[in-house]
Computed example of a mutant assay.
Amino acid sequence: MPRLKQGLVVAGLIIVLDQLSKYAVTQAFMLGDYVTLTPFFDLVRAHNTGAAFSLLADQAGWQRAFFISAALIASAILIHLLRRESGSVLFKLALSLILGGAIGNLIDRILHGYVVDFLSFHIQQHYWPAFNVADSAITIGALLLVWDSLKKPRKS
């Protein structure tokens, strides 16, 4: 049970950081506003009704219920996996980061019908899709899962 509590604390920290950062952006920027901070990084206010890279964002609205349902199911599975005694510390950390990110974006979808994105990286006029703290936590968690799986000894 201690690992579950630790995992929920990590997930909770991600949720708080994500929601506070999104709140700050929505207070400081109107939709589409941006400020250039470096030659390759802008803060911007964007709304995403789709998934990563705005996948399905152009649909008629059914995707909101789909993404809410998917996030709820994924969160339940992640909590179940965190409750299990097996798994490395790295594995549990990865699950916690993904859980926090999933819930952070779930809150946006429920409250607003879209996810607030604000981190925008680019090379000259070639822009990576804007993202947020929750997206970053999900990505880092996924990378840690891959790393953890590569560290495990192979069975012959």
Rank of each mutant, 00 (worst) to 15 (best):
M1Q: 11
P2N: 14
R3H: 14
R3L: 11
L4V: 09
K5D: 04
K5G: 13
K5N: 09
V9R: 10
V10R: 05
A11N: 04
L13M: 15
I15Y: 01
D18W: 10
D18Q: 10
Q19H: 07
L20A: 08
L20E: 02
S21N: 01
S21K: 01
K22E: 11
K22L: 13
Y23K: 12
Q27K: 05
A28W: 09
F29S: 09
M30Y: 05
M30I: 02
L31I: 13
L31N: 08
G32M: 01
D33F: 00
Y34D: 09
V35A: 13
V35T: 13
V35M: 08
T36G: 06
T36H: 01
L37W: 12
L37F: 11
P39L: 11
F40M: 13
D42T: 12
D42A: 10
D42E: 14
V44G: 11
H47N: 12
T49M: 13
T49L: 08
T49C: 06
F53P: 12
L55C: 05
A57D: 11
A57G: 15
G61N: 07
G61P: 10
W62R: 10
Q63S: 07
R64W: 07
R64P: 03
A65L: 14
F66D: 01
F67Y: 12
I68T: 12
I68M: 15
A70F: 15
A71Y: 09
A71S: 15
L72K: 06
A74T: 14
I77C: 10
L78D: 09
L78K: 11
I79P: 04
I79R: 01
I79L: 06
L81C: 02
L81H: 03
L82A: 07
L82D: 05
R83F: 00
E85S: 15
S86Y: 10
S86C: 07
G87W: 00
G87D: 00
S88F: 05
V89G: 14
V89T: 15
L90F: 04
L90P: 05
F91G: 04
F91C: 03
K92S: 08
K92D: 01
K92T: 02
K92C: 02
A94Y: 00
A94S: 14
L95I: 06
L95Q: 03
I98G: 02
I98T: 05
G101Q: 10
A102M: 02
I103V: 15
I103Q: 00
G104T: 08
D108H: 10
D108Q: 10
I110S: 03
H112V: 00
H112T: 00
H112G: 00
H112K: 07
V116Y: 10
V116K: 07
D117Y: 03
D117T: 04
D117P: 04
L119H: 06
L119Y: 05
H122L: 03
H122S: 06
I123W: 14
I123V: 14
Q124F: 14
Q124G: 10
Q125K: 12
H126C: 02
H126S: 07
H126R: 02
A130W: 03
F131P: 08
N132Y: 04
N132H: 05
N132D: 04
V133H: 03
V133S: 03
A137I: 06
A137F: 04
T139H: 05
T139F: 13
A142Y: 02
K151A: 15
K152L: 14
P153S: 11
P153T: 10
P153Y: 01
K155Q: 12
S156M: 01
